[in-house]
Amino acid sequence: MDHEQAFELLPGYLDQELSLSEALEFERHLAGCEQCQRECERHRQVSARLRQADLRVEAPAELVKRVKASLPGRPTPWQRLVERFGWRSGDGAVQWAPIGAMAISLIALSWSAGLYLSVPSGETRFTQELVDNHIRSLQFDHLSDVISTDRHTVKPWFDGKLDFAPPVVDLAQQGYPLVGGRLDYLNGRPVAVMVYRYKLHPINLYVWPGNDAGTAPRVYQQRGYHLAHWSAAGMNYWAITDAGDAELNGFVTDLRAHPAS
């Protein structure tokens, strides 16, 4: 190892960063080189003075606070909120208790809001029940208890089964032949159901006494079924079918145009 090479390795030797073989070679050179010995001494003194001079500065408490406050991420509205409400103790640590309490309240609030929103309104629940009932009625042999295309057969069939006489209308001329009737149970009460057809589509017409809706039919759609609801002459009507909107409209219009018998 010549002087040039040794001189380059000098800092590494002082910092104990040389490999063992390099260090040994350097020491062999150092033993016979006054210049390198002087240089080593100078470097050692500089290092010693740097370390003794108290040059290391500590992070001010203010900075520690600032950094902690800004983590994680940039100041978010949440953090500004936290700071605004002064949920910080003296040493800059966030006091978690109020935040936890607030989080729990928020969770509880959204939970109850979710529950409230997931509970269907009375009307929605009722249309659901109607759709279910309609579907059930379409299952084998459920549609009609009395099978007749004659209203004078269907209407008397209800006698003694209900405390009211449902109006039964013949709409065969309009393309909605009566196919029968049945007794059903809806919303906690027995109701009369007249079954009509439009082509191959069954139409269930639910009737019971009451005046829940206006005379103008309101239409609904649920799970592909069309529903219409109105009241007339002290009776509540619900019509439901898987036929189209227009067909249901036609049915309802014809039905209302006909005098109840």
């Binding site: 380059e8 390795l9 000098l10 800092p11 590494g12 910092d15 960063e17 100078r42 470097h43 500089v46």
Partner: peptide, 16 residues
Amino acid sequence: VMSRLGRGRQQLAALL
């Protein structure tokens, strides 16, 4: 790193 440390210390020694 080693050569910069060497130069740095030399300059500091000269300054001091």
